[in-house]
Amino acid sequence: MRVLILDDDEELGSLMQPVLAKYGMALSLSHAPSQAFEQLDRDAFDVLLLDMMLPELDGMAVCRAIRSSGKPYAEIPIVALTARAELTDRIVALEGGFDDFVAKPVEMRELVARIGAVVRRKRDDGGVVAPEPEADAHSGLHLSPTHMSAVYGPYAVNLTELELRVLTALADAEGVILSRADILTHIGYTEQSDPAMIDTIIYRVRQKFRDQGLASDFIKTLRGQGYCIKAEQNS
């Protein structure tokens, strides 16, 4: 597996190289966005580790440039490396096109697990657009992978990939309560992943529907147990 890291801390990448090599990962180093783009243009990588705080461009700007580039690497899995891992920072990273994030200082076993998870999800997706699902008769929720959207009653919102995955897992459960760990498994993450990620994603989905005028939540929280979609539409 080929991994590219973009981080202006030159020592960090050098320390990571021998550790990742033990797991069959060849790490290439770049210390500035311009250098990283040259390497992406020249070589094929399986995943990009991207520092959120860079001197030329911040990590969000680099991620946006990659996603909108129209080049073969536009869909490369990107893992954010960040010294800030509060709720707002996680939301910004996930909404901005990152596939996952790892807090600094980096714990190498966690990093290896997250790299493996994002690469597996990309491989399993296979670049194939899923067929449009039928309306979920249990909840009244309509999900569209093609249009990356959700419709609940008269309310429609656009979704990120992770939001779509979470809603699909809940809809498929047909009212059965899913714990955060259950949902993480359904969306392709491992037990090493931060379960608070699910809270973040569900918060964003709820907020999107509230912004459209939905007064009550169709995603039900059961304290200490997890989440499910309500059996009856309440708009």
Score class of each variant (00 low, 15 high):
residue 126 G to N: 00
residue 42 R to K: 15
residue 71 K to T: 15
residue 178 L to K: 07
residue 108 M to Y: 08
residue 139 S to T: 08
residue 31 H to V: 05
residue 79 V to C: 04
residue 39 Q to V: 12
residue 85 A to L: 06
residue 73 Y to P: 09
residue 20 L to Q: 03
residue 23 Y to H: 14
residue 188 G to Y: 05
residue 140 G to N: 02
residue 46 D to I: 02
residue 55 P to M: 10
residue 201 I to Q: 07
residue 69 S to L: 09
residue 13 G to A: 14
residue 47 V to D: 09
residue 8 D to F: 03
residue 42 R to M: 12
residue 184 L to D: 04
residue 138 H to I: 09
residue 107 E to H: 08
residue 102 V to N: 00
residue 2 R to P: 07
residue 121 R to L: 12
residue 129 V to M: 06
residue 6 L to E: 03
residue 46 D to Q: 02
residue 153 G to Y: 06
residue 22 K to M: 13
residue 204 R to T: 14
residue 8 D to Y: 03
residue 85 A to R: 06
residue 138 H to P: 10
residue 184 L to N: 05
residue 232 E to L: 13
residue 183 I to V: 12
residue 199 D to F: 10
residue 56 E to F: 15
residue 233 Q to F: 12
residue 82 T to K: 03
residue 72 P to R: 10
residue 152 Y to E: 01
residue 131 P to Y: 03
residue 227 Y to M: 09
residue 131 P to V: 04
residue 135 A to H: 06
residue 52 M to V: 12
residue 159 L to W: 00
residue 144 S to E: 03
residue 202 I to T: 07
residue 165 R to W: 01
residue 112 V to C: 08
residue 158 N to R: 08
residue 222 L to F: 11
residue 118 V to K: 08
residue 62 V to L: 04
residue 175 G to L: 05
residue 104 K to C: 01
residue 42 R to E: 13
residue 199 D to E: 13
residue 79 V to R: 04
residue 163 E to N: 00
residue 183 I to H: 06
residue 190 T to V: 06
residue 128 V to I: 02
residue 219 I to E: 07
residue 197 M to P: 09
residue 134 E to P: 00
residue 131 P to T: 01
residue 93 A to G: 08
residue 224 G to Q: 11
residue 89 D to Q: 13
residue 49 L to Y: 01
residue 124 D to M: 09
residue 29 L to T: 04
residue 40 L to N: 07
residue 13 G to P: 11
residue 45 F to R: 15
residue 33 P to L: 12
